[in-house]
């Protein structure tokens, strides 16, 4: 197992390098640059040159690339053009907010997905299944920004139940510990629900399909023949093999968990990684954009690895595989 992990990690290095290089190339190929952003007609050529030197933008592209790669190898992500602080610091501050939001959304995704799928397969093609299918496909088909807007209109504006932005209320500093926690939960409500519900719709569809497949399997028929209750059959015997595709989906969720959802974080003013990436990309803040993308790539690699390892836990056959 350890060898598997190590082998996969080593194999991931060239992949990460490739992603880093591609991102670097793309970001420089995009029209406009950071100093273009300093949109001052009277900015003298000298001042402009100073800005270029300050950020290393005066060097030829290959030297910029080597310099960046060298720092990266030393674990130095550089200094943000926009925030004028080390990139690592900027990302480190944004990470907890994203983890909280995406983590909550993921839990909601799995829990709700599971409940919906189980509800569906009680009587496949029955009225409940059809209702859940329509709802799930409907929600899954909604663009997140639209769903978020709708959620704000209904739950903030019309009903006034939940706040529409930020992690805390203005006066949260004066609240007691539990009060602060409750305040955080309220603020978490809408963004987490928007992310979680869409995820749950997908999870429910995957899980429904595999559950139906597994229920027809011979081992379940044998178990049923032994007189096990339907409940026990479902929760103990059918669910575990049916979870396999969910594990894959879960592994693929890790990148979102770390890099955040740009759309939801921007709409709800959530101070996470997606928000940082959005701001940085708009401002041509190259170091932050590169670092966020690279982090996302690393999360994809690690997510896949984690999914493989989880597979081994859920499916004993996978442990033997090379």
């Amino acid at each position: 197992m350890t060898r598997l992990v190590l082998r996969r990690l080593v194999a991931a290095l060239p992949l990460l390098w490739l992603v880093a290089t591609l991102t670097f190339a793309l970001i420089h190929a995009a029209p406009g640059s950071y100093e273009d952003q300093l949109d001052h007609p009277r900015l003298t050529p000298e001042a402009r040159q100073l800005v270029r030197e300050r950020y290393g933008l005066d060097l030829p592209l290959h030297r910029q690339y080597l310099r960046w790669l060298g720092s990266l190898a030393r674990g130095d992500l550089g200094v943000s053009f926009l925030y004028r602080r080390p990139v690592a610091e900027v990302l480190w501050e944004a990470l907890p907010a994203t983890l909280l939001l995406s983590g909550t959304a993921l839990v909601l995704d799995l829990a709700l997905g599971l409940v919906l799928a189980v509800g569906s397969v009680r009587r496949p093609h029955g009225w409940l299944d059809r209702l859940i299918t329509v709802l799930a496909l409907g929600v899954y088909g909604m663009p997140t920004f639209w769903l978020a807007g709708l959620a704000i209109l209904v739950f903030s504006l019309l009903l006034g139940w939940l706040p529409a932005s930020h992690m805390h209320a203005v006066a949260a500093g004066q609240l007691s510990g539990p009060g602060r926690f409750l305040d955080l939960l309220l603020h978490l409500g809408l963004p987490a629900a928007c992310l979680g519900v869409v995820g749950a719709a997908a999870t429910a569809r995957y899980l429904r399909a595999t559950l139906i497949e597994v229920r027809g399997a011979l081992f379940l028929r044998a178990a049923r023949a032994r007189g096990l209750s339907e409940r026990r059959l479902l929760w103990v015997h059918a669910l575990r093999p049916a979870l396999l595709p969910v594990v894959t989906v879960l592994g693929l969720s890790l990148p979102v968990l770390v890099s955040g959802s740009v759309v939801v974080e921007v709409i709800f003013s959530w101070p996470g990684m997606g928000r940082v990436l959005w701001t940085a990309a708009n401002a041509r803040d190259i170091p932050v954009t590169l670092a966020t993308t690279l982090l996302g790539a690393a999360a994809v690699v690690l997510g896949n690895l984690a999914a493989d390892l989880l597979y081994a836990v859920v499916d004993p056959r996978a442990r033997e595989a090379p």
């Binding site: 529409a164 203005v170 921007v266």
Partner: peptide, 20 residues
């Protein structure tokens, strides 16, 4: 005085309405 940064124009207008 508190300045809240709300990058979405839609959110900003909604929060005026909700008196946030």
């Amino acid at each position: 005085v508190v300045w809240r940064i709300i990058p979405s124009q839609f959110s900003l207008v909604t929060q005026l309405r909700t008196a946030s």
